[in-house]
Amino acid sequence: MPRPYTDPRTAHQKIAAKLRRQITRGDLRPGDALPSTPALMEEWGVAGTTVQKALLMLKEEQLLVGKRGKGVYVQGGTQQSISPMAYMAPAGAGESYRWLTEATKRSQRGTVELLNVEVVTPPFEVRQALGLAEDGQALLREQILSLDAEPTELTRSYYPLALAEGTAMMDRRKIKGGTPTLLAEKGYPPREFVDEVSSEIPTEDEVVALELPKDMPIMLTFRVVYSDDERPIEVSLLAKAAHKYRARYRLKVA
């Protein structure tokens, strides 16, 4: 028998959570009108101020919009699925970075903004994955990936210096086709990747970069990319807004 447990959240957080789930899973669609405040008050047994606080949370998340004299309507839609497999293969000769070409396939405009390139001592789990010593260093390339001018993913990718030194990866400029293409040209094509996906409380830089509303978690992917002989060639931390995006994996079962 499960032990007793009570939801510790406030009433307005519970209301927002239920409405958010209905929006992100498609039960409430863009353009749908929400029940009136009195109706929500009756449904939940709460005061009007509590309902308004719940609706304000979802307006800040751009999931709802108020129309003066008409009510509150769904503005956001279901979460967008992003398939990691679509981005792993190096771009073909003369092709753009796969983030851009995949966005075009979905009739979206993808952009990439390079934020930082520097040699750093990576975080503990990155050093472990790359097989670095405690004071080992790697190249960090940090970018913001956007869809239709909306910041979608903050990427922090680390590369072994032995692979990066003497290449365009060390320069603070974009690379035609992206780093996977450059590494493949050097003889280190991606052969396998391992993802660990978690829900995390965002740091300040993640909130700012992704323009997140208050109290919104992120979906954080810790990815290790391997080349031939299981050599790690890239370790990335990929942060996305948890209420807008989801990862889709399609794997064959032996």
Rank of each mutant, 00 (worst) to 15 (best):
151 P>V: 12
101 T>F: 00
143 Q>Y: 03
97 Y>W: 13
214 K>E: 15
131 G>N: 08
153 E>F: 00
31 G>F: 04
231 R>H: 08
229 D>S: 09
173 R>C: 07
221 T>N: 15
101 T>I: 10
229 D>K: 07
162 A>V: 14
202 P>D: 13
201 I>G: 00
202 P>I: 11
80 Q>C: 03
91 A>D: 13
136 G>N: 04
234 E>V: 04
238 L>Y: 00
83 S>G: 11
132 L>C: 05
76 G>M: 10
157 S>F: 02
58 L>Y: 09
153 E>G: 00
147 L>T: 07
75 Q>R: 13
160 P>H: 05
145 L>E: 15
130 L>A: 02
93 A>K: 11
223 R>M: 09
31 G>W: 05
31 G>S: 07
206 E>Q: 14
203 T>V: 10
213 P>E: 11
111 T>I: 01
112 V>W: 01
39 A>E: 15
108 Q>C: 13
137 Q>G: 03
250 R>H: 00
105 K>R: 13
187 G>F: 01
40 L>R: 02
21 R>A: 13
153 E>Q: 14
7 D>L: 09
142 E>L: 02
177 G>N: 07
166 G>C: 06
47 A>R: 10
241 A>E: 01
34 L>V: 08
125 E>W: 05
35 P>K: 03
147 L>P: 05
220 L>Q: 13
198 S>M: 12
68 R>H: 14
175 I>S: 08
32 D>N: 11
58 L>A: 06
209 A>E: 04
78 T>P: 03
190 P>H: 05
230 E>M: 11
95 E>T: 02
198 S>H: 07
165 E>M: 06
1 M>Q: 08
245 Y>L: 13
45 G>D: 12
232 P>N: 03
170 M>F: 04
224 V>N: 06
158 Y>N: 00
107 S>D: 15
164 A>C: 05
180 P>V: 12
224 V>E: 10
175 I>G: 06
17 A>M: 09
205 D>E: 15
196 E>N: 08
42 E>S: 12
75 Q>N: 05
191 R>H: 10
160 P>A: 02
202 P>M: 09
7 D>V: 07
18 K>S: 13
49 T>I: 11
130 L>W: 06
220 L>A: 08
149 A>C: 02
73 Y>I: 04
36 S>G: 12
57 M>T: 14
235 V>E: 11
72 V>P: 07
63 L>M: 12
7 D>G: 05
172 R>N: 11
202 P>S: 10
242 A>L: 14
83 S>D: 15
37 T>Y: 03
61 E>G: 04
146 S>L: 05
144 I>M: 14
49 T>A: 14
23 I>A: 08
17 A>T: 13
57 M>Q: 15
205 D>I: 02
131 G>I: 06
41 M>Y: 05
208 V>N: 11
109 R>C: 04
116 N>I: 01
159 Y>M: 04
61 E>C: 01
207 V>D: 07
68 R>P: 07
152 T>W: 06
71 G>I: 11
76 G>V: 14
177 G>R: 01
59 K>W: 01
45 G>A: 09
221 T>D: 12
56 L>S: 15
89 A>V: 09
50 T>Q: 05
156 R>D: 10
87 Y>D: 04
154 L>G: 06
